[in-house]
Design a protein around this nucleic acid. Sequence first.
DNA 1: GTATTGCAGTAACAATGGTTACAGAGCTAC
DNA 2: GTAGCTCTGTAACCATTGTTACTGCAATAC
Lengths: 210, 210
Amino acid sequence: MHEEIKEAYGFLFEKELLEEISEVGTLKRVKAGETIIEIGDYVTGMPLLIDGAIKILREDDKGDELLLYFLERGDTCAMTLSCCLGQKKSEIRAVAETDTIFVMIPIAKMEEWTSKYKTWRNFVFQAYHARLSEMLDTIDAIAFLNMDQRLMKYLRDRAKIKGEVEIQSTHQQIAYDLHTSRVVISRLLKKLEMEGKISLQRNQIKVIDL
Amino acid sequence: MHEEIKEAYGFLFEKELLEEISEVGTLKRVKAGETIIEIGDYVTGMPLLIDGAIKILREDDKGDELLLYFLERGDTCAMTLSCCLGQKKSEIRAVAETDTIFVMIPIAKMEEWTSKYKTWRNFVFQAYHARLSEMLDTIDAIAFLNMDQRLMKYLRDRAKIKGEVEIQSTHQQIAYDLHTSRVVISRLLKKLEMEGKISLQRNQIKVIDL
DNA sequence: GTATTGCAGTAACAATGGTTACAGAGCTAC
DNA sequence: GTAGCTCTGTAACCATTGTTACTGCAATAC
């Protein structure tokens, strides 16, 4: 396990911290599509992403969803982190976007390291900063963009995360992420295809030029 | 100055930290309506609110605005804080909602205190946590609520911040905050008045039962 | 092969919110 | 007083998004 952590975080943390992480962290592997944390769950630890991607979703009282952002290698979930400190329940749902590997750190340790290691402190601040930026980005999208532009941004983001131009997904799944209806997504995707920006197959969208 | 800081932050920070704040901080007073920081400005310090309220706004490239949240006594702007660490330009605009007093802390000090004082560290984490929560709240509102409900929430929030049921504001100003048009706000306010939830005068809205 | 299921395409319509245009009310300056 | 300005109310219309309903295609099970 040490090697995987070192590879992903070696450039950030000193040897002692990497060793501590190896010691107290638990390595977890989840398959694409698996739910990692559910809204209302008590947060028991903090995940450090080694490989893969996780999508973070918000849900309202009627069960409507909205994608907030993706976490990638080297990221951690500041939202979770916040919950840790407050001993609160999770405000969000986390679902593996691809097959994912991460290390789970117990809450107590992460508090201890905050005073012990400057690199850890900076990492945590950096994580908060990154999450705030992503949230701003999300707000910009839902406040200032029309659905067609939001959809284009969404497709670009997903293609980038996966590192491929093909996106495996049904229109309904996209509709959930963008908090709209399947019909709207089908309509807009067809329009994008007409414009030569994507090509459509069953369960797959190929990004050509977005 | 020491007294004002002690009154607002005495329950959080130890004597030495309060003294350091008094020493290096600059007390600022701004009138309601004044802009405290503009998008693109370099961030030179971090504000600790002593009294009053500040509203934080986001703007898109076309100049359209959106209210993100309010800061009150005891709050600090985590967004600013983020910018400090990254030496970046401000992503947001801050405008005094009421007459406001705050202490400006130089960046260097706030980094130093992060390792020196546990109480300061907790305060900073707490600030990040609070801002993330507010952002989630804002996202919920724009993603899941209709304009009439967003308007009601907005009026409730403003009445609470000011501690009065009368809100001094034109319909146009409200429209800017909610990123919509004056006509829409007038229409909805009239509907709320019909329902007996508010009463309307020129430049003033009185909250009756929201 | 056929039946079943899930997915995508499309039309018609409804609801919400945004835009334009204009009238009138209230305040201020003179 | 009245001239000029800002703010509010309202109607009519448009654009975008959401909803309902139905069709046909592709994959899978049998």
